[in-house]
Amino acid sequence: MKDFWLIKVFRGTGYTLVLLLEALGLFTHAWKRRAAIMGQMHIIGAQSLPIACFFMLLIGMVFALQTGIEFARFGQTNLVGLVIVSAMVRELGPWMTAFVLVARVGSSMAAEIGTMKVSEEIDALEVMSVNPVSYVVMPRVFAYAIMGPVLTVFGTLVGIAGGAIVANIQLGVKLEDFLRFAERGAEPLDIYWGLLKSLVFSLCAAAVACSNGMRTSGGAVGVGQASRNTVVIALTLTVFLNYLLTSFYRMVKRLVAGLM
């Protein structure tokens, strides 16, 4: 008997949320599992750094080129710095880093846990009275939540640098002009909000990956499915949450401006 798809969606969402809360609630085990958390931070953070930076560098370069062409029509090429910084800090940095991480880490995380599930390793842990959420899920969620924002900082900086290089070489903007306008691109609150977004995306992607892994059944096909579902669901959630968080931020800012 096949369940109605909506019921499956609700069941999956519920499981994922409970798993996330359970993992976060096990923060008391973090010290005991510090080795596992460090190992995951290495995989999620250090090993993803080159690819994330490469992505952000090229995105920054393309972005500078495209906006530069338009600004040149109005003779305002100097403004490129402002646009790049505001876009990078508020949107592209957190968002594209989240994409890179989901593709590189989320999918493999789901496949890894899924394989553990179908090869009875998760059951074995449970039979040994080792809570799989504490042993497998919690270190991954914590490492992801820590390294997501860290990578966002690196990615954003590299992206801005990429923009500056293109602005300087191809658009003929002097570096000091770029920086002068760049300063006006973002205020501290923007930066914090961008990092908060990154944290939300990271938690969300880690929870989706672990939940899909833990619910895997049916051998190699099931593992493939878990990995695919993770990428699709995590990316969809990322774009959706990004929109929500951005509109919320705008609303708050307007409210604050209106009060003052």
Binding site: G39, T115, E120, E121, D123, A124, E126, V127, M128, S129
Partner: peptide, 20 residues
């Protein structure tokens, strides 16, 4: 159940060793 399971040792079909 966690307490109960300490009474048991289980050998799974494929060994179920932790890969890492």
């Amino acid at each position: 159940l966690e307490v109960l399971r300490r009474k048991f040792g289980v050998l799974f079909q494929s060994g179920a060793l932790i890969g890492w």
